[in-house]
Simulated scan of single mutants.
Amino acid sequence: MTLRDRGALAAMAAGVAALTAAALVACGSQPAENVGAEQANTLASAPPAGVGAPSVAVTAGALPGDGRTVPPVRLLIPTIDVTATVNAVGINERTNEFEVPPSVDQVGWYRYGPGLEANAGSVVIAGHVDSAKQGRGAFFRLRDLDEGDTLTATGDDGEARRYRVVAREEYRKTKIPLDRYFARDGKPRLTLITCGGPFDAKARKYRDNIVVTAVPD
């Protein structure tokens, strides 16, 4: 990953799931207890079965060019009552941040990473936690997911793919390991991201990111 790429992704992590409009409603400020962190790290570092382990840089400005990409269009997480439309998003050219859909009941798939058909890498979906004007976001209860919970991501090919949660972690936005969560190598996995931790009223944003990792079930 180049320094330019890391800079862009760092800005994305800082802005992911945070509305630019002034007002966010404080969600639970107590840090979520991390579970499965070691397994999440193993998934990121291990090559998929039958595939070598060359690291592929995350590039913010180019789509993967290796065949048909299947974008997720719908996300279902029964445990936390989520049924959300998934939009393909990139980086906002003006703010250099992850361009999460403005409607808090929708979530965004990072279209410069792997699609649902990929046999390697991290499929990243990010969503808002909440908004003072719109209320609770699709990922308001993301921090409640636990190991073993299941979810379904449906692609634009109509196929519903089932995943199982293996990890839930919370990081300061300045400390999130971007190489791990936006990688195109390692075992196939789904990465869900939102904001969490204490809310800074002056800066009008949350301090942390909540990251949930799920694997094909």
Rank of each mutant, 00 (worst) to 15 (best):
D5C: 13
A10S: 13
A11K: 15
M12T: 06
A14W: 12
G15S: 08
A18R: 02
L19R: 08
A21D: 11
A23K: 14
A23T: 14
V25E: 03
C27S: 09
Q30W: 10
P31V: 10
N34L: 09
G36D: 03
G36A: 07
G36N: 05
E38H: 12
E38F: 12
T42Y: 08
G50V: 14
V51K: 12
G52M: 12
G52L: 14
S55M: 14
V56C: 13
A57N: 15
V58F: 13
T59E: 15
T59I: 15
L63F: 15
D66W: 08
D66P: 01
T69V: 11
P78E: 02
A84R: 01
T85C: 10
V86A: 02
V86T: 02
V89W: 00
N92L: 12
F98E: 00
V100G: 03
D105F: 10
D105P: 11
V107K: 01
V107F: 05
W109D: 06
R111I: 14
N119I: 14
N119E: 15
S122F: 05
V123Q: 01
V123I: 10
I125W: 02
G127S: 08
G127N: 05
V129F: 06
V129K: 04
D130M: 02
S131A: 07
S131F: 03
K133Y: 15
K133A: 15
Q134P: 05
Q134Y: 06
G137C: 00
F140T: 00
L142S: 00
D146R: 14
D149G: 05
L151G: 04
T152Q: 11
A153E: 02
A153C: 09
A153S: 08
D157V: 04
E159G: 07
E159H: 09
A167H: 00
A167N: 03
R168A: 10
E169D: 13
E170V: 11
E170W: 07
Y171F: 12
K173R: 15
T174P: 01
I176P: 01
D179W: 08
D179I: 10
R180G: 04
G186T: 06
G186M: 05
K187N: 08
K187F: 08
P188E: 06
R189P: 03
L192A: 07
I193F: 00
C195S: 06
P198S: 10
A201V: 15
A203N: 10
R207V: 09
N209W: 03
N209G: 06
T213G: 09
A214F: 04
A214K: 02
A214I: 04
V215N: 06
V215P: 01
V215D: 03
P216V: 04
P216M: 05
